Amino acid sequence: MENTPPELGVIPQAVTLAFGKQDISVTYGFFPWSRALMLAEQGLWDGSVAWTCRPAMLGQFYFSDPIVAHNYVLFHREHMDFDWEKLEDLENYRLGLTQDYNYGKEFEEAVASGAISADKTTSDETNFRKLAAGRIDLFPMEQAVGMEMLRRLELEDRISFHARPLQSDYLYLILSRRLPESEQFLRQFNEGLDELRESGRLEELLANSLPYLPASYLIVEDEKSRCTE
């Protein structure tokens, strides 16, 4: 059974519009990230949005062309004196992470080795509340999504972020390889996404949905940046 859907974010809106260019309607279910991935992998749902490129997932999923650029930054409490340049600078802080997110190879190796202290939960909202309460010091999150989430949580006056990106990547639609129709859906989505981008509608959507960021922040500069081995 589907959960009651919240207001669609900018990525699901873009996916809906791209499929709409091919006269395909989209239905969304809202689940924790781990469950969403499992449901898509098993073919119980067609796919999931939005994921960074993970070559280890290519055996289970088709990755679309990149939808938008993706930049993780480190969120912190508004009045915390914080600066950093390299991963070693994070070793004295407590970080909150969200389960099944991809924070980049170097960062995740530092966490796995114990060089960076991190605690994982299944929810971005939980991490932001832990940050506001002082239970963690830093939370890496996509800047645009994080700012919108803070607005909804009414925490935008208590939490800020450092402008240096922890990771820069792209976000993709993934479709289950267990479903025979996925290859056709992938082709149709990519064609619709191309139309959306060429018409200027994607940039317009970004500008309207995220007015506090320049639309160019999320624009894919290399439209052929596909997820491969």
Rank of each mutant, 00 (worst) to 15 (best):
M1E: 02
N3G: 08
N3R: 10
P5N: 08
P6D: 00
E7F: 00
L8F: 00
V10I: 02
V10F: 01
P12Y: 04
L17Q: 12
D23R: 09
I24E: 13
V26A: 02
T27I: 06
G29C: 06
F31S: 04
M38D: 12
L39V: 01
L39H: 05
E41D: 10
W45L: 05
D46H: 15
G47P: 00
W51R: 15
W51I: 06
M57I: 01
L58Q: 14
L58N: 11
L58Y: 12
F63T: 09
V68S: 02
V68G: 00
Y72D: 15
Y72H: 12
F75T: 03
R77W: 11
R77M: 10
E85T: 09
K86L: 13
D89F: 10
D89A: 11
L90R: 11
E91M: 05
Y93E: 03
R94I: 01
G96Q: 07
G96C: 03
T98F: 01
D100A: 13
Y101H: 15
K105C: 00
E106R: 12
E109A: 11
V111N: 10
A112L: 12
G114H: 11
A115G: 05
I116S: 08
A118C: 12
T122D: 10
D124Q: 11
E125I: 03
N127Y: 10
R129G: 05
R129V: 09
K130T: 07
P140N: 03
E142Y: 00
A144Q: 06
E148A: 03
E148Q: 13
M149H: 07
L150W: 08
L153H: 12
E154S: 12
D157P: 05
I159D: 12
H162V: 01
A163M: 02
R164S: 05
P165H: 09
Q167S: 09
L173I: 02
L173R: 02
I174R: 13
L175I: 02
S176T: 00
R177M: 02
L179E: 09
P180C: 01
E183D: 02
Q184Y: 06
F185P: 00
L186N: 10
R187E: 10
Q188H: 07
E191C: 07
E191R: 15
E191Q: 15
L193Q: 08
D194L: 14
E195I: 04
E195V: 02
L196R: 09
L202R: 07
L202Q: 11
L202A: 08
E203K: 13
E204C: 05
L210Y: 14
Y212D: 13
Y212A: 15
Y212P: 00
L213D: 09
P214Q: 04
I219L: 11
D222G: 08
R226E: 07
T228V: 08
E229L: 08
